[in-house]
Design a protein around this nucleic acid. Structure first.
Lengths: 346, 346
DNA sequence: GCTCGGGAGTTTATCGATCAACTCTGCATC
DNA sequence: GATGCAGAGTTGATCGATAAACTCCCGAGC
């Protein structure tokens, strides 16, 4: 291996080697074939490979004024739900020639919002913010001049495009199923008591609506706030069982919670779905391999990812044109598996 | 809101506004306080906030010759194991002032690395390559002038630093445990028949060694190659049961496989660990919430992440100094839960 | 009185690619 | 013969930040 310099090979070097101008090399690299003759192009390409030339992205970005990267903020990498989401978005953006760069915000909403303000953001052309369940960040304080799409549970800010999941509708469907199959006392695991515009708030609202539809009263003691992981679900259900309160179904606001619930029910010797039915939310791959397999709400991640990419790209293209703010809600549906009983065919 | 230009605020603008030179603004921004007087600094900072100045990362990167980003290639986002790994690495690099950018290669590392002038890799200062089980890219063909650390299962290339998991040792420990608790016919789920230097190959080797240690023969029919997810585990074990072959333990080469195995055993009415013991590998969070809770091998992700960051950073610092290639192996250990019986206290 | 040193800044020359505008052949058209 | 024009390139001016070298001032030391 010939000892070579630390210096990088630049377009100038290639140009010199091929006997053309740097601009022509640029044209070749960027596929502007209309501006370059066939012979010249071949010569340039040969020089590129011979010299081992690599384009300097920083220089390109500086000149072009954009980086070709889109940022994605997710609360954590270490979660199937967000993992799948990131993967789907990644593919959708790749199709459009954009690179998706994923950052984890560590779950704190504050970090999520700060990621909008921090210097990281400066290297992206646009940003996708997937929000964790929780409180409401103060978007209206921060100032941003780049396209942002929020991917979340509810409308959070009047300034950005949103792609939302139909939390309320999904929860309504899930709860309806439980009621139809004879449940009388349904726990809202991870639910909240205030009627708030948050992920658990909306899902709790759907749960309440399904009850209201058939004139059934709600027992507030069955609404169990919790963290949204398996650990929280496990602890909450164990405590509920220990308290002696009777229930015959669990609507868990996330699959993680449902997994923990299954665990706690198994610990207590309760059979699913005979003694207690369980429904989750999110249709994570884990939900297909629990014992018993989990009935859950499908959040249509693929479709949402596609919409997110579409919205963001259209904003990038109409950089200056004043597009109206858009809010897209994707419908949810229920996937019936083994943790619920079959609805009586009526 | 005052109508403002599309033009960005630059250091020049700040300099003009504060009545100093651009270089001084640069010094302030970069905290070179030795070169700037107190009063001046205050004035500059005021101008920065007033004008809403943001540093242009592309320009900085171009000038500095590095981007401050480290790339991480993982086979897929949609997996707990890689999710946790990415998260851990992310934190370790953040501590060191580097931004970790995660890409999923979809397994096709080779294509990425070989792509011509427009490769993503060029925007990173260094690279961490976490390889999928089956990948054997031809590293020695590609030429890379940046620090690379391979995070994997076995030594793959003589050119790069490696941080390895002790696959063989972990598998040996897991299998020993099964043998000690009385297992007589242990399935190697996801194992392979050839003694190869791959993740499943090494884990199968450890499995074989544990048998050899106590002079036990191996039954090749119990080694079941498979994909490494729950689906594969489920299918393989279901088929094995259907074939009528007897076994009383499963050593799954991944937790995903073990989850699928549990599912298949439950389907068949077999009790775990009474009828069949199960051990997984990777200690994913899912393994803590299966029914029953999974005994598994802890791969020491945190420690490996720390080592990866250390190695890469030290290479970045000694950009030219010729460091020896380093290979670090982290030991594995077994986490005993409910899917195995207690070893007789001898 | 003169040199020396360091604090506080400034000036200059890039980093590498790209946009915009310009040149220079030919060849077809009126 | 003059005009127009498309094709194939070239030239020069940046994009914004920064390393390196240089200036200027002021008090200390001999």
């Amino acid at each position: 291996m010939p000892g070579r310099d630390r210096m990088n090979v630049t377009m100038q070097d290639v140009a010199r080697h091929a006997g053309v101008s740097p601009q022509t090399v640029s044209n070749v690299v960027n596929g502007r074939s209309a501006r370059v003759g066939d012979e010249t192009r071949v010569r340039v390409i040969e020089s590129i490979t011979q010299l081992g030339y690599r384009l300097n992205q920083s220089a390109r970005s500086l000149r072009r004024g954009r980086t070709g990267m889109v940022g994605l903020a997710i609360p954590t990498f270490d979660s199937e739900y967000y993992g799948a989401l990131a993967q789907a978005l990644n593919d959708r953006f790749a199709e459009r020639g954009l690179r998706l760069v994923t950052e984890n915000t560590g779950g704190a909403v504050r970090a999520e919002v700060e990621s909008l303000a921090s210097s990281h953001l400066d290297s992206y052309d646009g940003f996708v913010l997937a929000l964790a369940a929780g409180d409401t960040p103060h978007f209206d304080r921060i100032s941003i001049d780049k396209p942002v799409v929020l991917l979340g549970e509810r409308a959070l800010s009047s300034r950005f495009d949103h792609v939302l999941m139909d939390n309320e509708g999904g929860a309504r469907l899930a709860t309806r199923l439980l009621l139809k199959t004879g449940a009388r006392a349904i726990v809202a695991l991870g639910g909240v008591h205030d009627d708030e515009e948050s992920m658990p708030g909306l899902r709790t609202r759907g749960y309440a609506e399904a009850h209201a539809e058939i004139g059934r009263d709600l027992d507030p003691a069955l609404v169990l706030p919790s963290t949204f992981d398996a650990e929280g679900g496990h602890g909450s259900i164990r405590a509920l069982i220990a308290s002696g309160r009777r229930f015959d179904a669990v609507f868990a606001v996330t699959d993680g919670l449902a997994v923990g619930a299954l665990r706690a029910l198994a610990d207590a010797g309760l059979r699913v779905p005979e003694d207690v039915q369980v429904v989750g939310f999110d249709n994570t791959t884990a939900s297909r391999y629990t014992v018993p397999r989990l009935t859950t709400v499908e959040p249509s991640n693929e479709a949402r990812a596609e919409t997110v990419a579409e919205l963001l790209v259209s904003r990038l293209q109409h950089r200056d044109g004043v597009l109206e703010r858009r809010v897209v809600v994707h419908p949810a549906s229920v996937v019936e598996r083994e943790s619920t009983r079959r609805a009586p065919s009526a």
